[in-house]
Design a protein around this nucleic acid. Structure first.
Length: 499
RNA sequence: GGGCUGGUAGCUCAAUGGUAGAGCAGUUGCCUUUUAAGCAAUUGGUUCCGGGUUCGAAUCCCGGCCGGCCCA
């Protein structure tokens, strides 16, 4: 460090703020030891004002200083709290000379509480006429620019708190996510579903086909996997007599990071005894329709990618998987074709498939690349090939398919659901057929549970992040996750130097 | 993992291979109903990091770090 401290620190906003803090402390006031007893959030306070009755109601609000309009002997400023912004009017002859002089030294980003009466300005904005205020936290770094906000995506994700302070759309979008999750809970509880929590650490990562994260428990000296689904645990609860259960849980999959994938994401899984996949169709339609109505205030949303309007209140299309494939390939006999013919058919559609793939994988490539993206309106795809999921019941009228649906909205898979397989012997056979040489991955304890008897049930998984993408119009999963996963980075950290 | 693309002041962005600039923010003044408030003056740069080419590099080349988009 130089032993010649710069005499002019006015260009260094951090140093200026540190100097202001030091001056306050030297004068006997430390903002970090102060607090304020608020009476209202901003939005609630604003609602208290009655037209024509200025200065009739006194409130104490608190928040972060985000706008300052200094007019010499008075200032209009705005503070931001959980509900939004509220304007404060600070007049020198009301708060007094000393307090006013101190107020002029506040910086954008500082957190303060203010007490005063509500009035309406001549431009019609309900404002607090400040009688007294207290600084309760000093911001030692400047806020991002007030008009453009923070737009560097890396900083938006790494320093989400700044994004939330200055980007109103981000605040609104992420708050909406909380309301969506809250609504789902209330919706399910109203139908007597019980919310449960099951382990994240598992001996066998089952219930889905995905690469798990691995970790180690020191005291037991055993490796654990982070769960890739909650399915097998929740079904054990059906065996245990919890007839309607759900979990909104974090799932971990050790796979790529992309616009639609975060290594940890949130999944709702619902199981209802004595129901089936048809029952789940009713459940999810009710859930999403009321969700739209209660949270968004409309059942019609704009799908950004396609420009289409998605209507949740209309009839939801039901179509068999095989019919979609036959339609896309223009081949009524597709499922009777040889593997070589299927490969040729897929390539004719512009897809590159490998001869090492199983036939159902070739067919499913057509589904996920050529069909799914076109299913914008809510669509139940029914009767999937049995190879795609070993946990569902085989269809009675077609033993090559299973009694399931895949709900697709906006070209994205939003919710798969099954008539759950409860025959322990069929279940074991399905596991073995799928696991191949890796039979050690079979969850034998789950099979034991099934042998004790699981009631017939419908079950469903809903990707909460994808649902939020859809309902908030977000472009990326990162925009609906508060702290998305990034490579450990070199974001400038807060210095600890004292000036 | 591959292709394309980006990293410049606290933030948002400029800058033909030739003196690194603007707006906001900051600092100093003026202004007691402002709405991106206004007016005047003014400070501020390891151009992500490390090499190379060149008389000269923010700019061109190579390598690295961290993002974004597309693909796998």
């Amino acid at each position: 460090m130089s032993d010649l401290p710069p005499s002019d620190i006015s260009h260094d906003q951090h140093a200026v703020r540190r100097a202001k803090l030091a001056e306050m402390r030297a004068g006997g006031f430390d903002p970090f030891r102060a607090n304020v007893a608020t009476t209202h959030f901003s939005g609630d306070a604003i609602k208290l004002h009655v037209d024509g009755q200025d200065n009739a109601v006194t409130v104490t609000v608190a928040g972060r200083l985000v706008t300052i309009r200094d007019m010499g002997k008075s200032q209009f400023v705005k503070i931001l709290d959980q509900q939004g912004q509220i304007q404060l009017y600070v007049k020198k002859d009301v708060v007094g000379d000393v307090a006013y002089a101190a107020f002029k030294k506040l910086d954008l980003g500082d957190i303060l509480g203010a007490k005063g009466t509500l009035f309406k300005t001549k431009t019609g904005e309900v404002t607090v006429r400040v009688e007294s205020y207290t600084l309760v936290a000093k911001a030692l770094h400047p806020l991002p620019e007030k008009w453009h906000g923070l737009s560097d995506p890396e900083q938006v994700y790494r320093q989400r708190y700044l994004d939330l302070i200055v980007n109103a759309e981000s605040r609104a979008r992420l708050l909406l996510r909380s309301r969506i999750v809250s609504h789902i809970r209330r919706f399910l509880e109203a139908q007597q579903f019980i919310e449960v929590e099951t382990p994240v650490l598992e001996n066998t990562a089952g219930g889905a086909a995905a690469r798990p994260f691995k970790t180690h428990h020191n005291a037991l000296d055993v490796d654990f996997f982070l769960r890739i689904a909650t399915e097998l645990r929740l079904k054990r609860l059906l065996v245990g007599g919890f007839d309607r259960v759900f979990e909104i849980g974090r799932i971990f999959r050790n796979e790529g990071v992309s616009r639609k994938h975060n290594p940890e994401f949130t999944m709702l899984e619902v199981y209802q005894a004595y129901s089936d996949h048809r029952g789940m169709m009713t459940l999810i339609k009710d859930m999403l329709t009321t969700l739209c109505r209660d949270v968004l205030g409309t059942t019609k949303i704009k799908h950004a990618a396609s420009g289409q309007e998605i209507d949740f209140a209309g009839e939801w299309r039901e179509v068999d998987y095989k019919d979609l494939i036959r339609e896309a390939t223009g081949d009524a006999e597709w499922f009777a074709r040889s593997k070589a013919e299927k490969i040729a058919g897929a390539e004719k559609l512009g897809l590159s498939v490998s001869p090492t793939w199983e036939e159902f994988e070739i067919t499913n490539e057509i589904f996920s690349k050529k069909i799914e993206p076109t299913l914008i309106q809510p669509t139940f795809v029914l009767k999937l090939p049995k190879e795609l999921c070993p946990l569902a019941k085989i269809s009675l009228d077609d033993p090559t398919t299973i009694d399931v649906f895949e709900l697709t909205i906006g070209g994205m898979e939003v919710a798969p659901a099954y008539s759950e397989q409860n025959d322990p012997d069929v279940q074991r056979a399905m596991f073995e057929a799928q696991a191949g040489e890796e039979k050690q991955n079979i969850d034998h304890d789950f099979l034991l549970a099934l042998e004790h008897g699981m009631p017939p049930a419908g079950g469903m998984g809903v990707g909460i992040d994808r649902l939020c993408i859809l309902l908030t119009g977000a472009e990326s999963i990162r925009d609906v996750i508060l702290f998305p996963q990034l490579r450990p980075g070199s974001m400038k950290t807060g210095e600890t130097d004292k000036t």
